[in-house]
Design a protein around this nucleic acid. Structure first.
Length: 886
RNA sequence: GCGGGGGUGCCGGAGUGGUCAAACGGGCUAGGUUGAGGGCCUAGUGGCUUAGUGCCUGCGCGGGUUCAAACCCCGUCCCCCGCACCA
């Protein structure tokens, strides 16, 4: 077996030495920016699941590079984050140590995979050279009013010991800790005003043609735009008003109560000093603090209470009782709702439970509702009733009318609401980008001046305890001077969410060493947008929203000219083993080292790209890998052992060009598995030939180069080519060189050979003494008859077997077979085809008859070309007779 | 409940109106090669049938459109992923 380890080392070394994959801006060339989501460098290193993800991008990058594009294909590390910090706490060390060790290991492994990154552009977000620009962007956000600090109820993960953004809370659990319930704290925290971009983020989704529908749908739902109306009601005995948001202003006359979210600040004020105060406080505590996420489950029992106050309907003057309830959310809309039990299921359940009246204002088309007999809300459409001037209207038509109606009466207007909330970026952790803020007793909140950036994390600092944010314990960091007045002041000890780092890293790759700016706008204009972004779907409502937001912000800052970071998002599938996702925590990882040692890394690459389409989940199969290994061995033997001829081999080249055509299309559309099947077909075909034309062999090597680059380089060199196949031009297929008839005729020969086998099997059963076979490859069916006549003139033939696969002739076979069995003495088969093919078929005869205890003899004669048969067949005439004696 | 994806041979997976359902790989069976082999080569691998290139069946289930359906339409069951009282 070839020494794949040596081959890999040799070529990885040469690529590195030649800086083969380094790119620079070249205005004359078309760019192609291919990017995989940069990884968190975990201490456990890479396994086959990672390998698959990177290979998907690498194949594409190599393909595009060979196609002449100026390919930007970089790698970097999302190197701030909790695991390194936790490891440091445990070891009383510094997270930088763990992080940089992990990065070194990642790089070594990624190089070992043969990934064609431009390593000169590598970045790591924990370096001051990188995170100073996080801080710079933060200051710009602050300047534009998009970064702000506010006190609010926030999500707290007790495991991470820090707050989380809404996007990082999944079904009440921390995104990193499936088991950990997120708690609630009331804290003062930094936010980014992503909601300012809600409308644009939503509209922009329509332009993301190359994103999958489900990711787009998830983003739409996450942003959650709804149109409706805001209505406000004066509260009796108080100067205050209660303002609500509703998407169903048409149900206005059906309102029988109003509900506040329990944590709404007005609630306490309204009950202060009343007999409801104690009970209200207890209810709030229960709902808000104990029940924060449970309460939002759909099947949660609706609970609430009357708070002793009434509002007045500004139109009808009716008294409307005010409630608080667990199903009303403070964060959405105005934190208060109108309740129309007749036409909303939640309101209905609540009204039934607490004995609140129900008032119908919309009737279904076919009957009238009776409030006393309703057992659920009617949420459908219909004609308005009990609604004053709106009576008789269709409720849908009435919705826009109501907005005008409220405006006329000065109690409301049409508005739009979003579910998207501002992005909480503060984290109470050490290993993140420091927020560049100083607190001064005299000057208040003071931004660190740009010239003082970066605010560096302390280096020599050793963790002493696992309690709280370690940064708070570091006096040398905390104590500083106020940038404005120079008096002693304290630094902000919160660091930024690591999703801030990853929101713009793709821009830094365009200009990774820039010390003046986060990136040169000219360079970004050259490379951006990302042509193909590869990563998991799990970031649909996290990173994939944030990086769009940053792109738009940096555009508004004048640094970018694009509206979206990428129009093409490719979501790769997961690698499974034993039916579950391959991961260290599941204990089912297959290590890169193990596979590389057993089969070589090209085998791993090949297998990972071959088994399933890259977008699909696939199962790792230890046994099946061996199949890929066998194939690569075969190709290696083909490339190094087979006789190579310069002569044209039309059949080989026909197949090669067909393969080039298909493989090119398949790679372009990420159908790698199909591309590899085509490659296997052509390779297997060539391997079965006596010799192989140089052109065909080179073509095969070129087609394989993106998938198995080391093997391809080795063979490329062996054939006698200079330079690297990795940067050789991708082969262009030439349709005129694909001789379909020739390919078809070869395929027919194979089938004829199979037929001969079948016939011989039967002969064996019938024990003939002596037979003669003439093979008829009648791929021009109409020739069979002519040939038969022709042959009967000159030969002693008793039967022609038209050994073709088409149905019409196949029907004759049983008859012929019976004739053969009954009278096996002289059964002729005739074969027509190109001369070379006939030779091949003839050469195959001994092997075909082997094992039958027969002596085989092949006789060849030429059928009269002068009769025009050959011309009609588009092939050289010939016949092949087999004389078999037992 | 809503949204998205999917149900094809022993397995991983192709094929999305017809000329060929199961490409390609794995597994299994038989034969060959070999001193030997977890190597290589060849053939077979839905059912029926003495045999066949024949017949039947067949792409979750039930209907439908069509000369023609794994593929299009309707209904239904199951699996996976996301979102889930957002007024």
């Amino acid at each position: 077996m070839p020494n794949y380890t040596a081959i890999e080392r040799k070529w990885q070394g040469r690529w590195e030495e030649a800086k083969l994959f380094r790119v620079t801006e070249d205005p004359k060339r078309t760019t192609c920016y291919i990017l995989e989501m940069y990884p968190y460098p975990s201490g456990s290193g890479l396994h086959m699941g990672h390998a698959r993800n990177y290979c998907i991008g690498d194949v594409y990058a190599r393909f595009k590079r060979m196609n002449g594009f100026n390919v930007l294909y970089p790698m970097g590390y999302d190197s701030f984050g909790l695991p390194a910090e936790n490891a440091a706490i445990k070891a009383k060390s510094h997270p930088q140590r763990f992080t940089e060790e992990a990065i070194r290991r990642f790089i070594r492994q990624q190089k070992g995979l043969g990934l064609s990154y431009d390593w000169d552009r590598m970045i790591a977000s924990h370096t001051p050279e990188y995170y100073r620009w996080d801080q710079w962007i933060f200051l710009k956000m602050l300047e534009k009013g998009l970064a702000y600090k506010k006190r609010s109820v926030v999500n707290w993960c007790p495991e991470c010991q820090t707050v989380l953004a809404n996007e990082q809370v999944h079904a009440g659990k921390c995104w990193r800790h499936e088991e950990t319930d997120v708690e609630v704290k009331d804290l003062e925290q930094w936010f980014f005003r992503i909601t300012d971009y809600a409308e644009e983020l939503l509209d922009g989704i329509g332009t993301l043609d190359g994103w999958s529908d489900d990711v787009k749908t998830m983003q739409r739902n996450w942003i959650g735009r709804s149109e409706g109306a805001e209505i406000s009601f004066p509260i009796e005995g108080s100067g205050k008003r209660i303002t609500v948001f509703t998407t169903r202003p048409d149900t206005f006359f059906g309102i029988t109560f109003l509900v506040y979210a329990p944590e709404h600040p007005d609630v306490l004020e309204l009950v202060r000093g009343t007999k409801y105060e104690t009970q209200t406080k207890a209810f709030i505590r229960k709902v808000v603090l104990e029940d924060r996420f449970l309460r939002t489950a759909e099947d949660r029992e609706k609970e609430g209470m009357f708070i002793g106050r009434y509002a007045t309907n500004p139109i009808t003057g009716e008294r409307i009782p005010l409630y608080i309830a667990n199903f009303v959310l403070h964060e959405y809309g105005t934190g208060a709702i109108i309740a129309v039990p007749a036409h909303d299921e939640r309101d209905f359940q609540f009204a039934k439970k607490y004995g609140i009246p129900i008032k119908v204002v919309i009737n279904p088309p076919d009957f009238d509702l009776d409030e006393k007999r309703m057992n659920r809300a009617y949420v459908g459409d219909g004609a308005m009733v009990n609604s004053g001037e709106f009576d008789g209207m269709n409720n849908r038509d009435a919705i826009p009318e109501f907005a005008r109606f409220f405006e006329k009466h000065g109690c409301g207007k049409a508005t739009v609401q979003y579910k998207l909330r501002d992005w909480l970026i503060s984290r109470q952790r050490f290993w993140g980008c420091p927020i560049p803020i100083v607190y001064c007793d005299a000057c208040g909140i003071v931004p660190v001046p740009e010239k003082d950036l970066p605010v560096r994390l302390p280096d020599g600092f050793a963790f002493t305890s696992g309690k709280g944010n370690p940064l708070e314990q570091c006096e040398s960091f905390v104590k500083t001077a106020c940038p404005t007045c120079g008096r002693p002041a304290r630094r902000e000890t919160d660091t930024m969410d690591t999703f801030v780092d990853s929101s713009w890293y793709f821009l830094r790759y365009c200009d990774p060493a820039n010390a003046e700016m986060p990136f040169d706008p000219k360079k970004a204009a050259y490379w951006m947008p990302i042509d193909t972004y590869i990563g998991g779907k799990e970031h649909a409502t996290m990173h994939l929203i944030y990086f769009r937001f940053f792109t738009k912000f940096l555009r508004d800052l004048g640094l970018l000219r694009i509206d979206e970071p990428t129009k093409n998002l490719f979501n790769q599938g997961m690698l499974h083993k034993g039916g579950v996702v391959m991961s260290k925590s599941k204990g089912n990882v297959v290590s890169q080292e193990e596979i590389a040692a057993r089969f070589g890394i090209d085998t791993a690459r090949f297998f990972l790209m071959f088994v399933a389409g890259p977008e699909k989940d696939m199962e790792w199969d230890d046994q099946a890998v061996a199949g890929s290994y066998r194939f690569l061995n075969k190709v290696h033997a083909l490339g190094t052992g087979k006789k190579v001829v310069t002569a044209s081999r039309p059949a080989q080249l026909s197949r090669l060009h067909a393969a080039i055509r298909d493989v090119t299309a398949d790679i372009s559309s990420f159908r790698y598995n199909i591309a590899l099947i085509r490659i296997m077909e052509i390779a297997n075909y060539l391997a079965a030939q006596e010799d192989v034309s140089r052109e065909a062999l080179e073509g095969l090597v070129l087609l394989m180069a993106p998938f198995t680059p080391h093997l391809a380089e080795e063979l490329w060199e062996h054939i006698g080519n200079k330079g690297f196949v990795s940067v050789a031009p991708w082969p262009k297929h030439d349709e005129t060189r694909i001789d379909k008839a020739l390919i078809a005729s070869e395929d027919y020969i194979k089938r004829v050979q199979a037929d001969v086998r079948s016939v011989l099997e039967i002969i064996k059963a019938g024990s003939p003494k002596r037979i003669t076979l003439i093979v008829a490859d009648a791929w021009k069916h109409d020739l069979v008859g002519k040939v038969r006549v022709k042959l009967e003139e000159t030969h002693d033939v008793s039967k022609i077997i038209p050994a073709v696969m088409d149905k019409a002739h196949a029907k004759e076979i049983p008859k012929i077979v019976s004739a053969l069995v009954k009278n096996p003495s002289r059964i002729p088969l005739v074969m027509l085809g190109a001369e070379g093919e006939l030779k091949a078929a003839k050469a195959a005869i001994p092997s075909l008859t082997r094992g039958f205890g027969c002596e085989a003899q092949a006789l060849t004669e030429t059928v009269a070309a002068k009769k025009g048969i050959a011309k009609a067949a588009g092939a050289m005439p010939g016949k092949c007779a087999i004389h078999v004696e037992k």
